[in-house]
Design a protein around this nucleic acid. Structure first.
Lengths: 357, 357
DNA sequence: GGCAGTTTAGCAACGCTGTTGCGTAATAGA
DNA sequence: TCTATTACGCAACAGCGTTGCTAAACTGCC
C-alpha cells in the first residue's frame, strides 16, 4: 500500500506549511492571529515561527501596540528567501519564469524550440533558460499531456514525434542537478492561482484555450489529476451528439464545436459554446472559482469572460467567481514553478515523507 | 481559517485509521505486514494494534509459523465491534440499513413515507426505523439535494414542499440522541463502495439513475462534494446544444435526453446516451472506477453495463473498471451508514480534531 | 533430550512534538 | 510609582513513534 504512516516530523511539517500558507496571504501577522487561525497554542506557534525565522522564511518586521500590555511582534513572509523556476513547453516555444515564495513573477523569457524537437533538445533549452542568478528550490515543467505525473513520464505529446514514454522528470533532474516537477500545463496553471490566493481557493478550475481546450483542477485544497493524470480533459466532452467528428474520435466535442466557430470568425459563438462547457464542468465539479487562460482565449478576454459570467446560473447559496488569469501568458510557467514551492512548502494533501528545509 | 493545526492525537488517529483501513481489506494480517505497508516500525504497529485490540476493533485470531522462529500473531478485524445505521430518504419511502465495521449489511427494511411528508414526519419514521438492538456509532442520512453537507441543512428537496433550509442534521441528532451525518444520496452511495473496497478505490464515481441522474464522486481517496455540496450533477450537463428543454432550464441535458428515450421505450438508446455522459465524466474527472446504481438503471442492469463498457475507449495506460453496485438498492442507505463509520474510523482527508474511541 | 539459531514480541529509555505552568518584560492608566 | 494587562519564552510535562535490548517461542541439528 502506498498510504504511508505518519511520524512526528510530518506533524511538524504540516504545521509549518500551515503557517507559511497563512503568511503567503497576509501582508503581516502576529503570534496570536496564527494561534487563533490554526487552533495551536501561542507557545506552539512561537516554536513554529522560531523555526521558520531560523531558516529565513519569515521575519519580524515590527511591533503592534494594542492599548495596554506588551506590544506583539509582527511577522511577515520573506518572499525572496526562496525561488523556483518554471517552464512552459509548447510545440514551438519554451517560456521560462522565475518566481519567489510569494508567487510573484520576477523574470520571464521566451525562447524558440526547434521544429519537432527531441527530448535532448528540450533539455538543452531548459538548461540554458533556467540559469537565473539565484539559488533554486527546484524547476517545474508544464506541458501538454498525456503524461504520468506520478512517474514523471511524458506518454505522448500532441503533434510531437519524439515524445513517447519519455522519462522527462528524471532526465531533467539529472541534467539540471535540481529537483524537477513534471505536470500537465493546466494543472500547473491552476496551481499558480491556488498558490497566490492561498487556502481560500479550495475548489477551482483553470480553463485554458490554447491549441486545445483543457481544465486544471484544484479540488478540496489540492491539485486533482485523476487516476491517470488525465483529469480536466473537458474539451473532449460531447456537447452535440450528432456534431462533427473531433480529432479524438468522438462526435460533437466541445473542442471541435468551439474551434469550428472560431475558424468561421464567430468568436462570440465560440465563447458561448465554451461557456456552456464551463457550466457543464461546474455541474460536475461544483468549483467556485473559474480562471480563464490560454493564448487563444486571451485574444478576446472580455468576450469569453462575459459569455462565461452570463452562462452561470445564480442561486442564493451558490456563487462562482470568474476571473482572467492575472499572470496572463506566464500562468503555466509560473504555476510550474509554484508546484515546486507547493511540494516543498505547501500544505501536504496526504501524509508523506518530506522536510521543509 | 478553517485549516486546523495538527496535534499529537491527530497523528495517532491517522495511524490507527490507516491500520483499520488495512484490516478492512485483508481477511487476516500480522504485525510485520502492517509495518511494511505503512512504513511504521513494528514496535509502533504493536502499540497501534494494542490500542485497537483494547477497544475491540481487532483481535488475535491465531499464529502463523513460517519455518523457523517464533510464530507471528495473526490479527483480524472484528466486524461486529461497531455498527452504524443509514437511511435513504426518497420522495415516498424510507430505506433503513444496519451495517457493521466491515461494511456488511446486516439488516435492511423499507417503510413508506406520507405523501409530501414534513421534517417532523420524517424524523418520526427515522426514529422508529433505526431502533436496532445494537449500540450504534451514529446514523447516516442520504437524500437528494440540494443540501449543505457542512452545515447539515437541506436546502430544498426535489418535489417536496416542506423542505427548504431545514437543519435536518441537528434535528435528527436531537431526536435520535446519536451522531448524525447528512449527505447527498449519491455521495453516500459512493462511500459504500469506497468503504467496502478499501484504499485501492482512490478515484471512483457512482452513477445513479433514479428519478434523476447524478454521480457520487470519490476523488483522491475521499468523498468530493464541491464548494456547495453540489458536485456530481452531471445529469444536468448539456449534451445536445439544440436539444429539448430540461426541467433545470437548460437545453439538451443528459437527463432529458435519457428520460425521453426511456419514455419512448428505447432503453438501449437511453443507456447509450448515459454511456456518453459517463465518458464525458471520465474525461473531466479521470476516475478509474465506475459503479452503476439506481432503481431505474437496475431495471436493465446488463443493458447499461454493456453500453458503458463499450463506450469507454481503451488505451495502454488507462483502465477503468465498470461494475454494478453490489449492494444494489441498499447502496445509498448502506453508504450513509458507512459515512458515519468513515467519519469515525476512516483515514482523515484533512487534519481535524477527532477521536477514534 | 538438549543446544543453537531464528524470528517475534514487548519493556524501557529516548528524541521530538505540542501543551501547560509560571516567571519576566513591556506598556497604559490610575 | 504602582497596578492591571498583554505578550513572550523558559522549563517541565504528556504523548507520539523509535531505538536498544531482553525474553519468548519455535525449528533444526546434534
Amino acid at each position: 500500500m502506498d498510504t504511508p504512516g505518519a511520524h512526528l516530523e510530518h506533524l511538524r511539517d504540516y504545521n509549518e506549511s500551515l503557517v507559511v500558507a497563512l503568511a503567503r496571504t497576509r501582508a503581516e501577522f502576529d503570534r496570536a492571529g496564527v494561534a487563533e487561525a490554526t487552533g495551536l497554542t501561542p507557545q506552539a506557534v512561537s516554536k513554529v515561527l522560531g523555526r521558520l525565522a531560523e531558516h529565513g522564511l519569515v521575519e519580524i518586521c515590527g511591533v503592534r501596540r494594542r492599548g495596554v500590555g506588551k506590544p506583539a511582534s509582527i511577522y511577515r513572509l520573506v518572499p525572496g528567501s526562496r525561488h523556483a523556476a518554471g517552464v512552459h513547453v509548447t510545440r514551438t516555444t519554451l517560456r521560462t519564469v522565475l518566481t519567489d515564495l510569494a508567487g510573484t513573477v520576477l523574470a520571464s523569457r521566451v525562447t524558440p524550440l526547434p521544429p519537432d524537437f527531441t527530448p535532448g533538445q528540450l533539455l538543452d533549452a531548459v538548461r540554458g533558460s533556467v540559469a537565473f542568478d539565484t539559488d533554486l528550490v527546484g524547476v517545474g515543467i508544464g506541458m501538454v499531456g498525456p503524461l504520468d505525473h506520478a512517474a514523471g513520464i511524458v506518454r505522448g505529446a500532441h503533434r510531437l514525434r519524439h515524445w513517447h514514454d519519455v522519462p522527462l522528470r528524471d532526465l531533467a533532474q539529472e541534467a539540471l542537478a535540481l529537483p524537477v516537477h513534471l505536470d500537465k500545463d493546466v494543472t500547473a496553471g491552476v496551481t499558480a492561482e491556488a498558490w497566490r490566493r492561498g487556502p481560500a481557493f479550495r475548489d477551482g478550475a483553470l480553463i485554458m484555450v490554447e491549441s486545445g481546450i483543457g481544465a486544471g483542477l484544484w479540488l478540496g485544497g489540492g491539485a486533482y489529476r485523476g487516476a491517470h493524470t488525465n483529469a480536466g480533459e473537458f474539451g473532449h466532452t460531447v456537447m452535440q451528439l450528432d456534431g462533427p467528428r473531433c480529432v479524438c474520435g468522438r462526435d460533437g466535442c466541445l473542442e471541435i464545436l468551439h474551434d469550428t466557430a472560431v475558424a468561421d470568425g464567430r468568436v462570440a459563438d465560440a465563447a458561448r459554446v465554451l461557456a456552456v462547457g464551463i457550466v457543464n464542468l461546474l455541474q460536475t465539479t461544483d468549483v467556485n472559482h473559474i480562471v480563464l487562460a490560454g493564448a487563444d482565449l486571451l485574444r478576446f478576454p472580455e468576450v469569453y469572460e462575459a459569455a462565461t459570467r452570463s452562462a452561470i446560473p445564480r442561486s442564493h447559496w451558490q456563487s462562482v467567481s470568474v476571473t482572467l488569469a492575472d499572470l496572463r501568458a506566464d500562468v503555466i510557467a509560473a504555476g510550474a514553478a509554484m508546484q515546486v514551492l507547493d511540494a516543498a512548502y505547501g500544505i501536504p494533501s496526504k501524509m508523506g515523507v518530506r522536510s521543509l528545509f
